[in-house]
């Protein structure tokens, strides 16, 4: 009886703590999104209330749509993220396959060289990256960002994928070789489909930091036509500090795409982290 009561109270305590922290985690998002649908008066009079018939207003969203080029920013972010992920996965998988499959001189050394970048942040080299992009004319193009994010994502991708590729059965590959498949076909037709779960993990790990990055868009591609959504909303909000409706709407619009991505990929992301892919 004593033990049972204790477990019940522990269980209530656990849920209490978790509910409290969940509220802390979600509260700011909730406040921002609900207030973005309210009139200016209502935002200030009762910030915690939900919008009702009287206080409902889309004026903030109208301002945002008129002033900021959010569709362009969104498109830029999309292009940068998708292209970077494509290159990270393609190049990363190819290199991982070479490291996992073939014995050659300097194999271990190459692996270590590629792994260096896991711990060293690419931002340290920003000064030289900017000079390079200026001298190659890539500054203010989306290519500058794609290249940087690809380089940034490769080390961890190679590391995770090569672990997985070591697990692919040799018999399968040798059977392919006997059937006369070239090494390229073995990689693309046999190995790639088998490591798809690991590729998904790598993609999800890289997606959110690339989408959310502010540093490189600010430095390498601040032009109007190459602004990403993160930079675009930063600049927009900075200009409209006093227009609370517009700021709250812009924030909500910036939250929306990430939340959609998260809802779609959260299971993959959490499985990736908890399966020990980053150990």
């Amino acid at each position: 009886m004593q033990a049972a009561r204790q477990t019940l109270s522990t269980r209530i305590g656990s849920h209490g703590v978790l509910i409290l922290y969940t509220l802390i985690a979600l509260f700011p998002v909730f406040v921002i999104v609900t207030n973005s649908f309210k009139t200016r008066r209502a935002i200030f009079r009762d910030p915690l209330a939900l919008p009702d018939e009287e206080s409902f207003s889309l004026i903030g969203y109208e301002t945002v749509m008129k002033q900021g080029d959010f569709f362009l920013y969104f498109q830029n972010s999309m292009i940068v993220t998708v292209a970077s992920l494509f290159f990270i996965l393609l190049f990363g998988a190819m290199a991982a396959f070479a490291l996992a499959e073939y014995r050659f001189k300097g194999n271990t050394l190459m692996g270590l060289y590629l792994a260096l970048g896991i711990m060293i942040p690419i931002r340290i080299g920003t000064v030289a990256i900017l000079e390079m992009m200026v001298s190659t004319g890539l500054v203010n193009t989306l290519w500058a960002l794609i290249l940087v994010y690809t380089a940034q994502g490769l080390p961890l991708a190679v590391f995770i994928l090569s672990e997985f590729m070591r697990g692919v059965s040799d018999d399968l590959k040798n059977a392919g070789r006997i059937d006369g498949l070239s090494e390229y076909k073995i990689f693309f037709r046999l190995v790639l489909p088998l490591v798809r779960p690991a590729m998904a993990t790598v993609a999800v790990f890289n997606m959110i930091p690339i989408w959310n990055d502010l540093w490189f868009p600010l430095i390498l591609a601040p032009a109007e036509e190459t602004k990403t959504l993160t930079l675009g909303s930063q600049v927009f909000i900075g200009q409209f500090v006093t227009d609370w409706n517009a700021v709250l709407s812009a924030l909500s619009l910036a939250i929306l795409p990430v939340m959609v991505l998260y809802v779609i990929f959260s299971r993959q992301l959490i499985r990736g982290i908890t399966s020990g892919a980053v150990k």
Binding site: M94, A95, F97, G125, A151
Partner: peptide, 16 residues
């Protein structure tokens, strides 16, 4: 297999 990753990584990360 190795070249693209090593080239991009070296040119955009290690060299800078």
């Amino acid at each position: 297999f190795l070249a693209p990753a090593v080239l991009v990584y070296t040119a955009v990360m290690i060299y800078p």
